[in-house]
Write a protein that binds this DNA or RNA. Structure first.
Length: 433
DNA sequence: GCTTATGATTTTAC
DNA sequence: GTAAAATCATAAGC
């Protein structure tokens, strides 16, 4: 029997004597069991094992010296291979416990969220899907641009911090892993360390670091949530439009009462004039239509006011045109030209009225054929339905633009052709709601 | 502080 | 997809 197998037998005896095996390391008694042969070698082994076990209790220098002594010991190779064998056997028993953990569902959720918010994953042009979705949901492409850019800037900030921290963690993790691996390699000279064990250790380190990363991800998600809620709150905040803007919108509304649905172009024009967004114009008209319909009586006065205002504006425009015509040579023959006063239909009337009265008014364009203009104006005013008698006296406003179902008449049906006998009271079948 | 007005959002119907 | 209707939330007036 050679030294090695004899030693194995001895060690097996030690273990059977009631000393457990822990952590892949055989734990011998402080002093070797005296076997039947009473071999002095056994005493040696016992001493060596004792030294191994107590090495951690000693100071570093001491331990270093002992380590060196152990390395140089004549029994070292034999003992080493025995330990390897023991570890191999004990390793089998713990293998089942180190199965790969399934992916953490919470971590997956966090990852998905960060990806969806544009914090992790590829950079989406500095923006976020969430912000874009929120902006789209609000109904405007360029709307909320201030908040949107603000949101994006803040999200970019969060993204940067997240990536910096993540990088730091990864770097620390790698450094620590390398350090531990070096340590294990170093230790492998004195005790058997299998690649599997190193792998396991690396796994443990990675798990620890990923738990830290999860905290980082959680904090990032929270930050994004807070930012998002603030962003949405900011969008919800209401600021009253300026008086001028409200007037412009009201003027348009009441002058188009027969069909208060501005076209996209008209909306853009109104938005520009009121310094608001197109979707705000849409919102305003949506609200106005429903509120007007719900309570026509309440809006009667307002309607009269704007009808009168528009009538005065129109009258002034006509007067100005007449005056202009008188002062200019009557022979100026620009009647019928495309540049002349052009009021094609009620749908565009307001904008042209605004042109007459507003900043864009150009006297030269309101030129020659005054009489035809007056006629056109009269016709258009009558078509608006708001004050068909405005130039002829009588009631300024008659809310006959709503049909019996509560809806506005078809845009193609001018209010002037609807029954004039229909009074304010007859159109309120929808006001019950 | 309460009420009303009003801009924005969400839900519903078509 | 769009408008109506309902609802929310805040500004403004008292």
């Amino acid at each position: 029997m050679d030294d090695q197998s004899r030693m194995l037998q001895t060690l097996a005896g030690v273990n059977l004597a009631g000393h457990s095996v822990q952590g892949g390391m055989a734990l011998p008694p402080p002093h070797g069991h005296e076997g039947a042969d009473g071999d002095g070698r056994k005493q040696d082994i016992g001493d060596i094992l004792h030294q191994i076990m107590t090495i951690t209790d000693q100071s570093l220098d001491e331990a270093q010296a002992k380590k060196h002594a152990l390395n140089c010991h004549r029994m070292k190779p034999a003992l080493f291979s025995v330990l390897c064998e023991i570890k191999e056997k004990t390793g089998l028993s713990i293998r089942g416990a180190q199965e790969e953990d399934p992916p953490d569902p919470q971590l997956m959720r966090l990852d998905n969220m960060l990806l969806a918010e544009g914090v992790s994953g590829p950079e989406k042009g500095g923006g976020s899907a969430a912000a874009a979705a929120a902006a789209a949901a609000s109904g405007g492409s360029s709307d909320n641009s201030i908040e949107h850019s603000d949101y994006r800037a803040k999200l970019t900030q969060i993204r940067q911090i997240y990536h910096t921290e993540l990088e730091k963690y990864e770097q620390a993790c790698n450094e620590f892993t390398t350090h531990v691996m070096n340590l294990l390699r170093e230790q492998s000279r004195t005790r058997p360390i299998s690649p599997k064990e190193i792998e396991r250790m690396v796994g443990i380190i990675h798990r620890k670091f990923s738990s830290i990363q999860m905290q980082l991800k959680q904090s990032t998600c929270e930050a994004v949530m807070i930012l998002r809620s603030r962003f949405l709150d900011a969008r919800r905040k209401r600021r009253n439009f300026s008086k001028q803007a409200t007037e412009i919108l009201n003027e348009y509304f009441y002058s188009h009462l027969s069909n208060p649905y501005p076209s996209e172009e008209a909306k853009e024009e109104l938005a520009k004039k009121c310094s608001i967004t197109v979707s705000q114009v849409s919102n305003w008209f949506g609200n106005k239509r429903i509120r007007y319909k719900k309570n026509i009586g309440k809006f009667q006065e307002e309607a009269n006011l704007y009808a009168a205002k528009t009538a005065v504006t129109a009258a002034h425009a006509v007067a100005a045109a007449v005056q202009n015509n008188q002062t200019n040579s009557p022979t100026t023959p620009n009647s019928g030209s495309s540049g002349s006063f052009n009021l094609p239909n009620s749908g565009d009337m307001f904008m042209n009225m605004q042109s007459l009265n507003g900043d864009s008014y150009q006297g030269s364009q309101v030129g020659a054929n005054v009489q035809s203009q007056v006629d056109t104006l009269r016709h258009v005013i009558s078509q608006t339905g708001g004050y068909s008698d405005a130039l002829g006296g009588g009631s300024l406003y008659s809310p006959h633009n709503l049909n019996a179902n509560g809806g506005w008449q078809d845009a193609t049906t001018p209010s002037s052709v609807t029954s004039p006998t229909e009074g304010p009271g007859s159109v309120h079948s929808d006001t019950s709601n």
